[in-house]
């Protein structure tokens, strides 16, 4: 289990990086922390022509908390998300989710940008982005663009990012930041989620005005569940259970060796209920059930 041969380059500036990307073609990959790429290389599930290391490119590891939004550079590690005070204050859901990513040694090296670009449908960051109305910022020699999380994740390991683009940062919106819940079913500490659910709400006068329910591990990409969101907004006394049931009944999950589709439905119910209760309890809204 050794990586296949590749050409390696470590650009020193962003323009240099973008130039290399534009010339390297479809078979090049970008190396951030490597915690998704290295297993793929060691297992020889990936055989890139070029590995382009972001480590020397300055400015990709900033955390910026202006205006209640949080902008996080692609090279920020999971561990920093877990410990950074700006994240804790402005995007506590992200701080919580970071703790579920792998083990400490993985979190020390793995990055949010790498995880999002990798687009594992069971990963935490994509659903955090979806729940917080986030976006992914991309750069290429052609310029900059920002893609809403909704539009970014297309399929397993497949995103809206074009081969000549690099993820430079993620941004988490502020509207949904303060009423949130996160719950994940892991077989063991550090495992990928079988199912993970992020819930975030906009509260007005103690009522849920708007809700986001984003679920990982159930499809070829992270999904939002409008039916569950509607149940939270409807705001009955059993809103969390209603949302959980709506999610369970509206999603047809995948099957794999970690769980059949019908088992995943049960997990969707359990984790949606828990995440929703956490989100609602944070504001004292309809939290009787559970």
């Amino acid at each position: 289990m050794k990586p296949p041969r590749f050409a390696y380059c470590a650009p020193q500036t962003l323009p240099e990086l973008l130039e290399i990307l534009s010339e390297a073609g479809d078979e090049a990959v970008v190396l951030a922390g490597g915690q998704s790429l290295l297993p793929m290389l060691n297992l020889r599930l990936a055989a890139p022509s070029h590995v382009i290391d972001l480590d020397r490119v300055p400015g990709l590891d900033r955390i910026d908390g202006a205006n209640g939004c949080v902008e996080v550079g692609a090279m920020v590690t999971h561990r920093r998300m877990e410990t950074d005070p700006v994240v804790a204050a402005s995007a506590p859901l992200a701080r919580c989710a970071a703790g579920f990513v792998g083990y400490r040694a993985i979190r020390n090296r793995g990055t949010v940008g790498g995880s999002v670009a990798h687009a594992d449908p069971a990963a935490e960051w994509p659903i955090v982005l979806l729940a917080l109305d986030g976006a992914v910022d991309l750069a290429s020699v052609r310029g900059w663009r920002s893609v809403a999380a909704e539009d970014f994740f297309e399929s397993v390991y497949t995103t809206a990012k074009r081969p000549d683009e690099v993820v430079t940062s993620l941004s988490f919106g502020s509207r949904f930041a303060h009423s949130w819940g996160f719950s994940e079913f892991q077989r063991r500490v550090g495992d990928f989620a079988t199912v993970a659910v992020a819930v975030a709400c906009v509260m007005e006068s103690g009522e849920v005005a708007e809700a986001r329910v984003a679920i990982a591990g159930v499809a070829d990409r992270p999904v939002r569940c409008p039916e569950a969101e509607a149940a939270l907004v409807a705001g009955s006394r059993s809103a969390a259970s209603d949302a959980a049931a709506a999610a369970r009944d509206s999603i047809e999950p995948i099957s794999d060796i970690h769980g059949s589709s019908s088992f995943r439905k049960r997990l969707i119910y359990a984790e949606t209920q828990r995440a929703a209760l956490q989100a609602l309890r944070a504001n004292g809204a309809g939290a009787d059930d559970g």
């Binding site: 297992l43 077989r187 063991r188 500490v189 550090g190 495992d191 990928f192 060796i257 970690h258």
Partner: peptide, 16 residues
């Protein structure tokens, strides 16, 4: 075989 990595063949870890 479907269990060919430690992601799929689960051994107990310390918290288990």
């Amino acid at each position: 075989p479907l269990s060919t990595t430690f992601a799929d063949y689960l051994v107990p870890v310390m918290s288990d």
